[in-house]
Design a binder for these strands. Structure first.
Lengths: 179, 179
DNA sequence: CAGCGAAGTTAGTGTCCAATCACTCACTTG
DNA sequence: CAAGTGAGTGATTGGACACTAACTTCGCTG
């Protein structure tokens, strides 16, 4: 197998592990085991554990970007925004994507990680702006709702049977509610 | 010094350290050094490192709760909500409070941590609901904006000189902008 | 003043883990 | 086939770290 292909597999495996433990709380051995390779080989594919973490973060933002791009294709204004919003709900079904994102934000004290998240966020922001053509107030509202959904999903509010939680989910992303 | 008082000091020190590294990325030795006590003594005050982490999270939510309560005192409706929003901007000047919160969300895969964050969030939600008396849509919008500010502050957007970042901050929490 | 409990320490243990090194194996190319 | 190259591994190391155990110090009270 070529190194690039292998790197892709390792990034996928690392996403799963990092989502649970974050950068510091995840061992390269766990990632290697999941990827089906030896632990030292990780360090031939990625110089450091942090490099691998950054690759995971970037791949997360890439996934969101591509999904948004596809969802908004051929649409403008509120239509485009709604389509992207729906698509975000679908993406968040993947809890790993969500938790990895949260770990990235939390680790923003590190300059490299901060720069990676900024870059990912900037690309998304500009995409939504360009695709919808809506005023800044609407873009802000879109991303604000997204961030609330993130936190709600992290706390697993969709599976919490309390009225405040149910209300919150219903008003932001009803697709996340079970059954 | 009494154990309870000492515990308070340790929680303060732990907040600073956990804000940077999160649960897994912080050593009890660093916390002890900052608190000015020996490392093993931490384990007489808190059974495990996670227990200390939970105490830190709870103290964060307590601080926000008290601040909101005081800000909304004697006000209702939009007035109360605006006062609490302003107060949140002030609280977020403390980057530690912010990053600790993000680490808690990211670590929500752990049942105990998830339960602690849920409890803290629930209390805040009900407080805002009760203090403002506004409809759910407005409560949602309030918390959504708060979560976007969180992420923006984590990425340190207030100090990023790019138009999208400046716009975002201006429209959500202009108080965070420097000078 | 004896002694007791709470505050706090020093020293230590077992474990985990990122990163390195030296190596093997299979393939390709001149 | 000889030489080289990329994929991949086993063994190891050096350090960090959560937590334990055993000891000291000291203020209080009978």
């Amino acid at each position: 197998m070529g190194a690039d292909e292998r790197r892709g597999l390792v990034v996928r495996a690392a996403l799963t592990e990092f989502a649970l433990g974050g950068l510091a709380g995840t061992s390269t051995e766990a990632i290697a085991k999941r990827a089906g390779i030896s632990q030292p080989y990780i360090f031939r594919l990625f110089a450091t554990k942090k490099d691998l973490f950054l690759a995971v973060i970037n791949s997360c933002y890439d996934r969101i970007y591509s999904a948004f791009l596809a969802a908004a294709d051929g649409k403008v204004g509120v239509d485009a925004m709604q389509a992207m919003g729906m698509e975000y709900g679908v993406l968040l079904q993947d809890r790993e994507l969500l938790l990895a994102q949260m770990h990235a934000y939390a680790a923003c004290d590190d300059p490299e990680i901060r720069e990676a998240t900024r870059t990912g966020y900037r690309r998304l922001w500009l995409l939504v702006q360009r695709a919808t053509g809506l005023p800044d107030e609407e873009i802000v509202r879109f991303f604000a709702t997204g961030m609330l959904i993130n936190v709600a999903a992290a706390m697993d509010l969709p599976h919490l049977d309390e009225s405040w939680a149910t209300t919150l989910i219903k008003l932001t992303c009803p697709d996340l509610l079970p059954e």
